[in-house]
């Protein structure tokens, strides 16, 4: 298929940036979206032009590195996938596709479609962990009985890959779905309860410092999340923070 791409090009963080139009031809419907961009970049390099910079790593939906706001949605129009799992069969011959970086004050653009998502790492570092002794005498995790429902819910929250689609989709550029997944995965387990109050307090403090917006429960994040993290986690985060503050 032949496509028209409207891609955000920005030379550097300080550059103003603009949408530039490109044509790609003979794209196979079996290609992933990133492979289609690879084809474009090969064309650009062959013509002596600067290739489009975009993030990618594992290309199998695990690492959370690929971003991209495609035709107005984080990771494109399909559900429960990352951009590397988006296939060109989702589009039709002759389509025009808008490709923009994840936009948020907390995600400054580095180049073209590449944004700095280390704000999410700093939130994680502020409390998204449990302090356990790893010196060789670690207790067997299975020695602590955990209700199946709690273990399942915790695991569901832990599937968050920190890609930032929630921030990109939210009209307020809020990171609450990410935050709530990271808080929930520990809050639901006995090992996580010990530091629960400090964790949620410190992580929210960091989140606010990074310049993310406030959650207004529109639910856009939940729809666009490649891992289907539920808004129920946000309610849990709110409960945890209230409990920690009283």
């Amino acid at each position: 298929m032949n496509l028209t791409l409207k891609i955000w090009r920005q030379k550097s963080p300080k550059d103003k940036g603009q949408i530039v139009e490109y044509k790609v031809n003979d794209i196979s419907e079996h290609m992933s979206f990133l492979e289609m961009l690879d084809v474009l970049n090969e064309d650009l390099v062959a013509k002596g032009e600067e290739p489009v910079a975009f993030d990618h790593d594992c290309r199998e939906g695990i690492c959370g590195m690929c971003s991209l706001h495609i035709n107005g949605e984080a990771h494109g129009p399909d559900r429960l996938i990352t951009t590397c799992q988006l296939h060109m069969r989702t589009f039709k011959d002759g389509d025009t596709i808008f490709i923009e970086p994840f936009r948020s004050k907390a995600f400054p653009i580095i180049k073209d479609l590449v944004v700095d998502r280390s704000a999410l790492d700093r939130i994680q570092q502020a409390g998204g962990f449990i302090s356990v002794n790893t010196s060789g005498n670690t207790q067997d995790a299975n020695a602590i009985p955990i209700a199946k429902a709690a273990a399942d819910e915790s695991m569901d929250a832990a599937t968050c890959i920190g890609c930032g689609a929630c921030v990109a989709s939210c009209k307020n550029a809020s990171a609450m779905l990410f935050m709530s997944a990271k808080v929930s995965q520990y809050a639901l387990l006995p090992q996580g309860r010990v530091e629960a109050a400090d964790r949620v307090t410190n992580m929210i403090k960091q989140m606010d410092k990074e310049g993310f917006g406030n959650c207004t429960n529109t639910g856009a994040c939940e729809v666009e999340c490649p891992k289907g993290i539920s808004l129920n986690n946000i309610a849990r985060l709110n409960r945890e923070y209230l409990k920690a503050s009283i």
Binding site: K6, E100, R103, K105, A106, A220, E224
Partner: peptide, 24 residues
């Protein structure tokens, strides 16, 4: 505050695909 959290808006934003008009 929410408005300032995304200083540069999207050129194309398909908000209808993921949220209701009321919520936005």
């Amino acid at each position: 505050k929410n408005n300032s959290s995304r200083p540069i808006k999207y050129t194309k934003n398909n908000v209808g695909a993921n949220s209701t008009w009321m919520s936005r």
